[in-house]
Design a protein around this nucleic acid. Structure first.
Length: 421
RNA sequence: GUGGGUGUGGCCUAGCGGUUAAGGCGUCAGGUUGUGGCCCUGAAGAUCGAGGGUUCAAAUCCCUUCACCCACCCCA
């Protein structure tokens, strides 16, 4: 009986929201081009293996968040839960390793995760992301961070915190996990249930548990930074050197980890002040291992993604965006059959001249039509009755200024408006 | 996935066991002959998220379910 609603965790973007979204997207694309990143658009669905094999079997994405389905031909497809793996698939498929390296790409689009919705977390979410593929240079890591922070600055978001960490290579993490296992083993009974689960599934995650934040064993846990290889450490220090050269402030947070297996070395997150639950507005990292998992040649790469809903949320909270949509310039008020026909003619002429016009529909009383004209927010009302039609003129009435209404010949209408606006 | 909160016309809210569910905003129409914004009048629009149950009687109590919100988990 109940009318259908948008699927859980998915939302319509109404006209009053569209302007903010367009502004964010336009700004993101502009900033990307400032850094010479080029747009890539990949399908919203991929062969399921693109995500399932790359994310790591223990990750939540694989365990429960991917929308999976078989199409009519029996192919196993997935709604994309993230962008990086899809971009890498495209990189391999189109032989981009034969382009000048690194290949700098950005994307903007919807992603899907079957997750329990809450503020700032949706089942359909939009992300802007950028990737530099084909370089292990720490300068590339810093460049992506710079691009990301530039975007936030251009949007007016200030006071953000950049936290960075190095999680080393997969090999480094294997060794570190052993160290952690030895460290937590004696305390496992006193840890929270979640941490006990993580002890088995992803022991690094115990470190950023909110529940066990104050637990002495967590406080005293060895830092991954002490277990980096020499190459890892040099890379991480070089990233920091580049950041300082760019004048970018950062905090080192050894507790940042990642759910996805293909990450390596640098990882980072950006949070707004007063961070609460779903607060991270963007995060990035290096993923040197991903290409090989996808069957391509070993190719180092680094990138980030930022959540558009979370960016929009922050902008609204800080009053950086008031719903101030652009109004149409002209609204017509047609009266009578002759007036209606003549108004249509005037409308055509104005639109051909690039002037936006909202057609007032015939058949209403003039009072009603004028009320509608008022509500449209238009700068001018164009009143066209049979009298005007016969004389070849229109009444041009300013709706927002104190100036008088004036009669204008149809031939002079465009120039009259251009002169006055 | 776990725990908690909320759910009344498009929006905000009143009503919290008992006659036809009230108000504001918004929408539409009208306020004499071709002119808006203020004001006035009127209209449309709610089986009170949905489905069960208790009761002579339920928007009001109970159960289930769905959705949203908050925290955890995870992540953007």
């Amino acid at each position: 009986m109940a009318s259908p609603r948008a699927p859980r965790g998915m939302h319509d973007t109404l006209p009053e929201d569209a302007d903010l979204w367009r502004h964010i997207r336009d700004t993101a694309e502009r900033v990307a081009r400032l850094f010479d990143y080029q747009q890539i658009t990949t399908p919203i669905v991929e062969d399921a293996s693109v995500f399932l094999h790359t994310a790591g079997d223990e990750s939540d994405i694989v365990q429960k968040e991917v929308y999976l389905f078989d199409d009519r031909g029996g192919d196993r497809l997935a709604l994309r839960p993230e962008g990086t793996a899809a971009v890498c698939r495209a990189y391999i498929e189109h032989g981009m390793s034969s382009r000048p390296q690194p290949v700098r790409l950005f994307y903007f689009g919807p992603f899907f995760r079957y997750d329990r919705p809450q503020a700032g977390r949706y089942r359909q979410l939009w992300q802007f992301g950028a990737e530099a593929i084909g370089t292990d240079s720490p300068a590339a890591d810093a460049e992506l961070i710079d691009l990301q922070l530039t975007l936030y600055r251009e949007l007016g978001l200030e006071g953000l915190t950049l936290r960075i960490n190095s999680i080393g290579t997969a090999e480094t993490r294997r060794r570190y996990a052993e160290v952690l296992r030895a460290h937590f083993e004696p305390h496992i009974g006193t840890l929270s249930r979640d941490s006990q689960r993580r002890f088995e599934t992803n022991i690094l995650r115990i470190l950023d548990s909110k529940e066990d934040l104050e637990h002495p064993a967590v406080q005293s846990a060895p830092s991954i930074l002490e277990h980096l290889s020499d190459e890892d450490r040099e890379h991480f220090e070089a990233v920091q050197t580049h950041l300082r050269a760019l004048g970018i402030a950062y905090e080192i947070d050894p507790r940042i980890v990642r759910g996805l297996d293909y990450y390596a070395r640098t990882v980072w997150e950006v949070e707004p002040p007063g961070a609460g639950g779903q607060s991270t507005i963007g995060a990035g990292g290096r993923y040197d291992g991903l290409m090989e998992i996808l069957g391509g040649p070993s190719t180092p790469a680094v990138g980030f993604a930022t959540g558009i809903e979370r960016v929009a949320l922050n902008m609204r909270e800080r009053g950086l965006w008031q719903a101030a949509s652009e109004h149409v310039e002209v609204v017509t008020v047609p009266l009578g059959d002759g007036g209606t026909a003549f108004a249509a003619k005037a409308t055509r002429i104005l639109r051909d001249a690039g002037i936006s016009v909202r057609s007032g529909l015939a058949g209403r009383s003039m009072r009603a039509a004028m009320r509608g004209a008022e509500a449209s927010g238009a700068t001018w009302a164009l009143i066209v009755g049979d009298r005007e039609a016969e004389a070849g003129v229109v009444q041009l009435k300013p709706m927002r200024a104190e100036a008088d209404q004036r009669e204008v010949r149809l031939d002079d209408l465009v120039s009259a408006i251009r002169e006055l606006r």
